[in-house]
Design a protein around this nucleic acid. Structure first.
Length: 818
RNA sequence: GCUCGGGUGGCGAAAUCGGUAGACGCGAGGGACUUAAAAUCCCUUGGGACAUACUCCCAUGCGGGUUCGAUCCCCGCCCCGAGCACCA
């Protein structure tokens, strides 16, 4: 292969021209199919997955490239380690982002998205990813979302999809449903109108049924601890009790109010009860005199948007006029209604224990309800006044609690629960805060939910053979004041024959959440091209679960949880053999610039094209990996890119000038083998910045004092560098006579014997302070080391008499305690 | 408020198991080459004391503790970032 660089002066070394080299190798990879994986014949399959991007009109972001490059390096490394690596990439192109952008620029997403994708593809190819583009996908393609709809039908069949009324944010001015992100401080982000709650019929998935399993499996998967912690908190297991409080409703009938508490030990301190405004018992418990007030309060809380309601801490509430009986004390306690109690959690009712819960304390203070101390700390007694709620429980002891006085909190939890259970008024329960997944979106740009409503047959699923329910092209896709999706206005699409009886029915006009699109895309990649099945059995068995997944932690509790849920559902339906989709997951950090996350509003976005143009994709990739620890992210600073570029220049120059005469230098070869080991270990644990540093350090040794490096010292560095800078590596591999692609060669073999040092620098400390460093044999004994150390005048100066104690760390350090 | 990350030179950072603090890179200063500049190459570069060297002292957000020895472990704070947030 001819060198693309034209030499006009043969005495000058050929300069490194990344633009030419990168174009050349991107062409060759394409022609030879270097990045393609033979999925059928692969012997050692390794599936590496990166989070597919949303193809924005602005194009590829440095953050995308940071994420993809880190994945690509890992994939290329695994290939050099002998695996058949499959590295696919696609587009998450449905959803509110695309739709809003299309609305803003006055274009149709069906026109916009394909253009964005084409642009992304071009940018991605320039960045040198080892992606097998034969297996790409976009969630907006009918042959993809056909299976997203199929997935919905499977959940329906399993009884895991259901419809119920739920609140959504509604902007009365824009007359549209808003996503939570579009509500800023209770106002619509566009019109600044106060947002209201509207109740709509929406589809839900029973992810909460899977809460215990989603939680327990976390102990068995190799994921970033930060991600697992986020999921644990999100799933939110809490152990406690359901306790029944007896009351009489206004009609004089007995009724029972069930509350959930994690602190049954504090029941003697329960001086009132609170029901959520939506609680079904509120009507029956509200006395005629209070009806007006309670009704008004319920109306008012309904109006509040979801976010304001969840985040306001100012306590409000109204008294129903009724009382319940505290089952422990037998006393009457007032029943209140307040929106600080949420209908969605627990039983929608609580016992108010103002002495030992900060929120109850605030509420009781505001409404002058009695506050009773039932737990006290070491320096307190039953009469110590409460200025704030006492919530420390570890060392607490019960007081004012009848026969349980003196019990520790832990003992009391068990004893009181047992006592209440006997009378049938309490049962131990475990609650999870994980809510069912609402997948309905009253929008246009998504896969239509495959349901038909028929006046005779009710809710009828679209038969699988009729999938996909194609999203029609409609000119006016803007949401309107009907509160339903714009699709409802498209008569000929909306009216459809019922699959059961043939009479005219109505289609479901909501589309599904984009997180449903992305909850299964990794299952699809290996089966791209198979239109008869969502994922083909044999190929899925061969390639899944995913071996390595690296992505942003912002998806810890959304995409990553949904994917696990969907995988479990398909496993339970007998369609998948595994129940966890990603064997290994690592969360990468984020690139910031000038102290802030890069964003358009901050005006600190970096366009990768310009950098690639100027420095080359290889230098840019290497820089991104070098700027900080990959799992923590780092600061993007233009100035530092020159360092990684210089490093590549020096490697390129070394290959042009290396000598073939004689033998490689032994001490350089020692450093080489130490570098081989370090780079391999560092890539394995995603410590990319130190891997690059190690190669730079080796380069410094290689060229120290303007020495001419030997061929044997230089060539092994090429595969080491290749995951980071694939183009220059291919070029130099070819120049040094390598056959085929460097990525079909092998990772250099590490030889421990060649890496071992004969002599070491032993650190000598006196009383833990470094006083000297002495050169000794690698395996020097403690006795010999002490003799050598005391021979050092500086050490001797600090050791007056006989040493009291000697600490010897072989090969490293000697500490003389004088 | 809760949870999880962080805090180390002028800057980005390293130190994998409690054992040389600051590898590697940027920037800065000096030098070589050049008519000159750029590029390249070489040297220096945490602070302080001494004229220099040897050497010594100080230094990993702050205050304590454990240890022969702490950037690392423990206790109590401060600050920054991310996520969750009236979850009973």
């Amino acid at each position: 292969m001819a060198n693309p660089v034209i030499r006009d002066n043969l005495s000058e070394p050929i300069p490194y021209d990344p633009g030419a080299i990168e174009r050349k190798w991107q062409r060759i990879w394409q022609e030879r199919g270097t990045n393609n994986t033979d999925l059928q014949r692969a012997q050692r399959p390794f599936y590496t997955l990166m989070m597919f991007p949303y193809p924005s009109a602005e194009g590829l972001h440095v953050g995308n490239l940071f994420a993809f490059t880190g994945n690509d390096i890992y994939g290329r490394f695994q290939r050099l380690m002998g695996h058949n690596v499959f590295e696919p990439l696609g587009y998450d192109a449905f959803g509110i982002h695309s739709e809003n952008y299309a609305l803003k620029v006055g274009q149709h997403p069906m026109d916009l998205i394909p253009r964005n994708i084409a642009n992304f593809r071009k940018q991605l190819e320039r960045s040198g990813l080892m992606v097998d583009w034969r297996y790409t996908l976009s969630t907006t393609e009918p042959n993809y979302y056909k299976w997203t709809q199929w997935l919905f039908l499977q959940l329906l069949k399993q009884g895991l999809a259901y419809k119920k009324q739920a609140a959504v944010n509604w902007c009365p001015d824009c007359k549209t449903v808003l996503a939570n992100e579009q509500v800023v401080a209770g106002l619509c982000e566009r019109s600044k109108t106060p947002v209201e709650q509207r109740l709509l019929e929406q589809w839900f998935f029973r992810i909460s049924d899977y809460a215990p399993r989603l939680l327990e499996n976390l102990d068995r998967i190799d994921w970033s601890e930060t991600t697992k912690t986020a999921q644990r908190n999100w799933i939110g297991r809490s152990e406690g009790a359901d306790i029944a409080f007896a009351a009489n409703n206004v009609a004089g009938e007995k009724c029972e109010i069930r509350v959930f508490t994690t602190r049954p030990d504090t029941i003697y301190g329960a001086t009132y009860m609170v029901l959520a405004p939506e609680h079904p018992l509120v009507d029956g418990l509200t006395k005629p005199d209070e009806r007006k007030k309670v009704g008004a309060y319920r109306e008012e809380t309904k109006k509040q948007d979801i976010i304001t309601r969840k985040t306001s801490t100012d306590k409000t509430g109204v008294f129903t006029g009724s009382y319940a009986i505290n089952p422990a004390t037998g006393k009457q306690i007032p029943i209140w209604v307040s929106d600080y109690v949420l209908m969605e959690y627990g039983t929608g009712a609580i016992m108010g224990v103002p002495g030992h819960d900060a929120r109850d304390f605030e509420f009781a203070t505001k409404f002058r309800l009695p506050i009773v101390r039932v737990v006290c700390g070491e320096r307190e007694d039953a009469n110590t006044p409460l200025i704030v709620a006492f919530t420390e429980c570890e060392s607490g002891t019960l007081v004012n609690s009848g026969e349980f006085d003196g019990y520790s909190v832990d003992a009391a939890k068990r004893a009181i629960l047992e006592f209440l259970s006997k009378s049938g008024s309490a049962i131990p329960v475990v609650h999870f805060r994980l809510h069912d997944w609402c997948i309905s979106r009253q929008r246009y740009w998504g896969p239509p939910i495959p349901i038909i409503y028929c006046d005779s047959c009710g809710t009828v699923p679209v038969p699988e053979k009729d999938l996909p329910v194609v999203l029609p092209f409609i000119e006016d896709f803007k949401p309107d004041d009907s509160g339903v999706s714009p699709l409802a206005r498209h008569e000929e699409w909306y009216r459809v024959a019922c699959p059961k009886c043939g009479k005219t029915g109505r289609r479901e006009t909501d589309v599904s959440d984009t997180f449903l699109d992305s909850s299964w895309y990794f299952l699809r990649y290996p089966s791209v091209g198979r239109d008869d099945v969502p994922f083909e059995k044999a190929i899925t068995k061969k390639w899944l679960p995913v071996n390595s997944y690296i992505g942003g932690n912002e998806h810890a509790v959304l995409h990553l949880l949904y994917s696990r849920f969907i995988t479990m559902v398909l496993h339970d339906a007998g369609m998948l053999e595994f129940e966890e989709p990603f064997t290994k997951f690592r969360a990468h950090g984020h690139i910031i610039r000038e102290g802030a996350k890069m964003s358009k509003t901050q005006g600190n976005i970096v366009n990768p094209d310009e950098y690639i143009e100027h420095w080359g994709a290889d230098a840019f990739r290497t820089y991104l990996m070098f700027l900080g620890p990959y799992e923590q992210g780092g600061d993007f600073r233009d100035a530092s890119i020159s360092g990684t570029r210089r490093f590549l220049d020096r490697l390129f120059a070394s290959v042009q000038s290396m000598s073939t005469a004689g033998e490689p230098d032994q001490s350089v070869m020692r450093k080489l083998h130490q570098t081989i080991r370090k780079v391999g270990e560092d890539i394995s644990r995603l410590s990319y910045n130190t891997a690059v540093a190690a190669m730079m350090e080796y380069m410094n040794v290689l060229r120290k004092g303007e020495r001419t490096p030997h061929r044997g010292e230089v060539v092994p560095l090429i595969p080491l560098l290749s995951p980071f800078a694939p183009h220059i590596a291919e070029e130099l591999w070819e120049q040094t006579g390598g056959t085929g692609s460097v990525f079909d060669s092998a990772w250099p073999r590490f030889d421990p014997a060649l890496a071992a040092e004969d002599s070491i620098e032993l650190v000598v400390q006196v009383n833990g302070r470094v006083r000297s460093r002495i050169n000794v044999e690698r395996d020097i004994t403690e006795e010999a080391a002490v003799v050598a150390a005391l021979a050092d005048p500086v050490v001797a100066k600090f050791v007056a008499g006989a040493p009291k104690k000697i600490i010897f760390v072989p090969g490293r350090l000697l500490n003389i305690v004088a």
